[in-house]
C-alpha cells in the first residue's frame, strides 16, 4: 500500500528532534492508548499486519499532523470495530457521555 505512511526518502520533514532522559510515556493519554493496543496484542486480536493496516487506513492529513500515539488511537478504534468489540455508534455515545460527565464535574 503506497500510502502516506510510506515516508522513506520523502523530503521536507525537517531535522530530527531528540530528548535527553526521554520518558517512556509523555502523558497519561499515551499510557491509555498503549494499554488498549497492548491488550489487543495479548488477546491475539491483531496480528501485526492487521495492526499496521488499521493505521494505514487513517486519514492521510491526520496521519501527518498528529503525534504517534494518535495513530495507535485510530488503530484501537478500527480494530475494535473490525473485531466487533464495540460499534462506532457505541463509541460516539460513550464519548458524549464522558464529555457531559466532565462538564458536570462528575
Amino acid at each position: 500500500m503506497n500510502g502516506v505512511h510510506d515516508v522513506g526518502g520523502k523530503h521536507g520533514f525537517g531535522t530530527v528532534t531528540t530528548e535527553e532522559q526521554e520518558p517512556v510515556f509523555h502523558g497519561q493519554w499515551e499510557r491509555d492508548v498503549f494499554s488498549v493496543i497492548g491488550l489487543y496484542f495479548a488477546a491475539g486480536l491483531c496480528p501485526l499486519d492487521e495492526f499496521r493496516h488499521s493505521i494505514e487506513v487513517m486519514d492521510p492529513a491526520e496521519y501527518l499532523s498528529t503525534p504517534y500515539y494518535v495513530h495507535w488511537l485510530r488503530a484501537a478504534e478500527n480494530l475494535g470495530f473490525w473485531n466487533d468489540l464495540f460499534t462506532p455508534e457505541e463509541l460516539e455515545a460513550r464519548i458524549t457521555e464522558l464529555e457531559s460527565n466532565e462538564k458536570e464535574g462528575l
Binding site: 530528548e19 488498549v36 500515539y69 468489540l85
Partner: peptide, 23 residues
C-alpha cells in the same frame, strides 16, 4: 513541530478513555 510530535490533539484523551470504558 519540533517537539517530537508528542502533544496530543484535544480529542485524543477523551476518545481513548471512551474505548477503555467500553471494553
Amino acid at each position: 513541530s519540533s517537539d517530537g510530535y508528542t502533544q496530543p490533539p484535544p480529542y485524543a484523551a477523551l476518545r481513548v478513555k471512551a474505548i477503555q470504558s467500553l471494553l
